[in-house]
């Protein structure tokens, strides 16, 4: 059984995962914030390091699967430096709206600056928000994306329910997240890369090996493809499915609000 399912079951122990360490549930948010405060200015570089630059392709497919069109409202949770939001801004046009949300103020600041630099303004709102308690009206959003953010949320089931509440009936949720490689050989290579090479690169480039080690550990503790699929169904999403990308290193889950 995946760890996420376990952590939901034994919630009364008041602890949760922070990478491979068990920490107090209340403390996790501030610890994650610490990691992202540390890496915010080099977030894009970090994504490039962690994915070998392929994260742009994973995000490109996420945008295609969103089927975003003119006039829609899109909520990008854990939107980081705003690369998805910038693309959505063009697709929804002046009649539509993109909400870039992140719990971390430092990330939002970088994202806002980046969007202004790209000329993506006018139809974008930047909101500091907790995915577990989204500050938006019921049935107000056509599509929600959360790219490489769900694994950092303390209570993922609560966050999924919050997303369902905000979505319009027929609206879709797309969760792009690191997952479990489908081949054992690829899994071993990926482990070596994540736990040996990635922290070393973090030390060299960002002088911050601990944050990068946390990121690698948090990926391993994140629910695998089938577990996350079950969690989405449990939260109330319908027509749930996922697409493995790059051998399952990343999976894109999709679900609709009935």
């Amino acid at each position: 059984m995946n760890d996420e399912a376990t952590s939901s079951a034994d919630r009364d122990d008041d602890t949760t995962d922070f990478g491979f360490t068990r920490v107090d549930r209340e403390a996790k948010a501030s610890m994650v914030r610490g990691v992202f405060d540390s890496v915010a200015s080099r977030y894009d570089l970090m994504n490039d390091l962690m994915s070998g630059g392929v994260h742009r392709l994973w995000k490109r497919y996420t945008i295609e699967l969103s089927a975003a069109r003119s006039g829609q409202t899109i909520l990008d949770i854990a939107g980081g430096t705003g690369d998805l939001a910038a693309r959505f801004s063009r697709l929804v046009g002046p009649e539509g709206k993109v909400i870039l949300a992140d719990i971390n103020a430092a990330m939002l600041e970088v994202g806002r600056d980046r969007l202004i630099d790209k000329g993506a303004t006018g139809n974008i709102e930047v909101v500091q928000a907790d995915a577990q308690a989204l500050p938006f009206k019921n049935n107000s959003v056509d599509c929600i994306t959360i790219a490489f953010g769900l694994r950092n949320v303390t209570d993922k089931a609560l966050a999924l329910r919050s997303m369902l509440r905000v979505l319009r009936p027929g609206g879709r949720l797309l969760v792009l997240e690191f997952s479990k490689p489908t081949s054992a050989l690829l899994g071993k290579v990926y482990d070596q890369y994540s736990f040996q090479i990635l922290p070393a690169m973090g030390r060299l480039i960002a002088q911050d090996a601990d944050s990068y080690r946390y990121l690698a550990e948090s990926i391993r503790k994140h629910p695998d493809q089938e577990t996350l699929l079950g969690m989405m169904e449990d939260a109330g999403f319908g027509e749930c499915r996922y697409h493995n990308m790059t051998g399952g290193i990343v999976a894109l889950h999709q679900g609709f609000k009935p």
Partner: peptide, 8 residues
Amino acid sequence: HDPALLSA
């Protein structure tokens, strides 16, 4: 098809 390959 792996969507990442096709996207590339």
